[in-house]
Each structure stands twice: as structure tokens, then as C-alpha cells.
């Protein structure tokens, strides 16, 4: 589903990704772990199409697409979803409106009929219940005044409604108490199926107790330095990231 080859990316002339290789197949859950500054979040952002990054080398194939050539909204319509580490507050736009606009943009792209307000609400209600979210949540402005836990739950709600093919979760576990973490995990596990893939970007092993990955990769200094099964996460929990060593000297940018 996703094949990343030799991906180099820099931000403000400083190289953050230095040759990432990764292959993710449908039905798989991959955890990307690594110390702060290793490039985990940059990788998630580059895949979702955030501006401000220069991809200097490498390629990303997603399904039949050259992913990097697509605008962010086209990636989203083709089934890529990024759950933000810091979801943005949007005063004046309520959650229900954004969810419906997003879902209908995806449906239009797929050639499906748009949902009206009644059908939309019916489809959302079930998901709200499953994620233990108060329906009044829908009437509030997107993320405005939300607690950290509410913001993350809102990301998971959006994901549940958009039903992505490739879900990328950028440190969705950071700052969550154990109850909120369980709700997030429940939401992720609910979309897990043989047709979808999930990329979990996380600093800690804790989330992986609830979302068990098929593969774990350690990213350090902009490269995948180790890959393994779920037991690698447990090993990292014991050894920490000290073993990855100091950053190599910066390579000259072409």
C-alpha cells in the first residue's frame, strides 16, 4: 500500500529525513518509534502533504499514486488520514460542519452520493457512542477550548468517520491519561481490517500495549536504524534510545 524509498526531506535548509525506507502492506500496523528529533513527526507530515518541507530525494508510492505529487486534500480523499499531534483550533466552525464537509468531499471524490444532514447524523451517532463522546461535542467549534484528551478523541472521531485506507497517527498518545488512551486505542482497533494500514508514530511503548503492532521501526537521525516485531518495542522500553548514538555530522545539501 505504501512504499517509501530513500526519502530525504529538509525544513529550512536543515535535513531531517536522510534516506527513509519503509514498506507498509494492507492489513498491517507499523509503529515508528524513536527519540525526540529523529524525524518521526516530519515523516508523518511529509506523507500528509504539509507545506514547508523540501523533499530533496526519494519517492513515496501509495496505492497507484506518486503520493508526493498529490495536493494534501487529494491525499485525504484518496484515503490518507493524519491524526495531528497538536490538532488546530478553528473558532467559528463547528465540528458537525467540518465532519460533514470532510466526509462529503471524500464521497464526491469516490463518486458516491453526498449525505444529507439526517443521514450524516445517523452515521455519526453510532461512532460517538463507541468513542464515548458526548453528542454535544458536535455543536462545539472545532477543537476550540478542548482539553488535550478531547482534541485527540476528536481526531479519532474524524478518522472513524472518514474511514481512511492509510491512517497515520502522530504521537496521538502524548499527554493522554490511561482512560483517554484506551478510548483512542479502541477507535484505532475498530478501523483495523485487512484492507487498511496504520502507521503509529510514538515515543513511548505504552500505546502499543493497547494497539499491538505487526512491525516496529526505530527512526534515528532521519533513517530507519532498526526494524523488528512487536517485541522490539518492549526491548526499547528497557534499553531506551541511548544506543542509537549521537547525530552524524550534517551532510552537505545539494
Amino acid at each position: 500500500m505504501l512504499r517509501i524509498e530513500g526519502l530525504h526531506a529538509s525544513v529550512a535548509a536543515s535535513e531531517v529525513l536522510r534516506g527513509v525506507d519503509l514498506e507498509v502492506k494492507a492489513g498491517e500496523v507499523h509503529a515508528i518509534m524513536g527519540p525526540n528529533g529523529s524525524g518521526k513527526s516530519t515523516l508523518a507530515h511529509v506523507l500528509a502533504g504539509r507545506g514547508g518541507y523540501d523533499v530533496t530525494a526519494g519517492s513515496v508510492r501509495y496505492l497507484d499514486h506518486d503520493l508526493l505529487a498529490l495536493a494534501p486534500e487529494i491525499r485525504a480523499r484518496e484515503g490518507v488520514f493524519l491524526a495531528f499531534q497538536y490538532p488546530v483550533e478553528i473558532p467559528g466552525v463547528n465540528n458537525a460542519y467540518l465532519l460533514k464537509a470532510a466526509l462529503n468531499a471524500v464521497r464526491r471524490h469516490r463518486g458516491e452520493e453526498e449525505l444529507d444532514a439526517v443521514d450524516f447524523l445517523a452515521s455519526v451517532k453510532e461512532k460517538l457512542r463507541h468513542l464515548e463522546i458526548d453528542p454535544r461535542f458536535l455543536e462545539r467549534a472545532v477543537n476550540e477550548g478542548f482539553s488535550g484528551g478531547e482534541k485527540k478523541r476528536n481526531e479519532i472521531l474524524q478518522m472513524a468517520i472518514l474511514e481512511p485506507k492509510l491512517a497515520i497517527l502522530d504521537e496521538t498518545d502524548s499527554g493522554l491519561d490511561i482512560d483517554a488512551l484506551k478510548v483512542v486505542a479502541k477507535g484505532v482497533n475498530a478501523i483495523r481490517d485487512p484492507s487498511r494500514a496504520i502507521l503509529l508514530v510514538t515515543h513511548y511503548q505504552r500505546l502499543l500495549d493497547y494497539i499491538v503492532p505487526d512491525f516496529v521501526h526505530v527512526l534515528a537521525h532521519g533513517r530507519v536504524v532498526r526494524s523488528g516485531g512487536k517485541e522490539l518495542a518492549l526491548e526499547l522500553e528497557k534499553t531506551g534510545y541511548g544506543w542509537v548514538g549521537a547525530a552524524p555530522p550534517p551532510e552537505a545539501l545539494v
Binding site: 504539509r50 486534500e73 485525504a76 495531528f84 488546530v88 478553528i90 467540518l98 464537509a101 468531499a105 472518514l162
Partner: peptide, 26 residues
């Protein structure tokens, strides 16, 4: 806010629609 624009784009809204939505909300 470019961050808000990207957030809406990542939720499948086109750039023009995202701009219109944020402007109207403002």
C-alpha cells in the same frame, strides 16, 4: 493561519473551500 488551512486540507477540503470556510468563520 497556514496551520488551520493545512488542517482543513488534510480533512479533504480543497484549498479554496478551506480559505472560504476560515474567512467566513472569522
Amino acid at each position: 493561519d497556514p496551520q488551520a488551512l493545512f488542517y482543513l486540507q488534510s480533512r479533504a477540503l480543497g484549498l479554496d473551500a478551506a480559505r472560504a470556510l476560515l474567512t467566513r468563520a472569522f
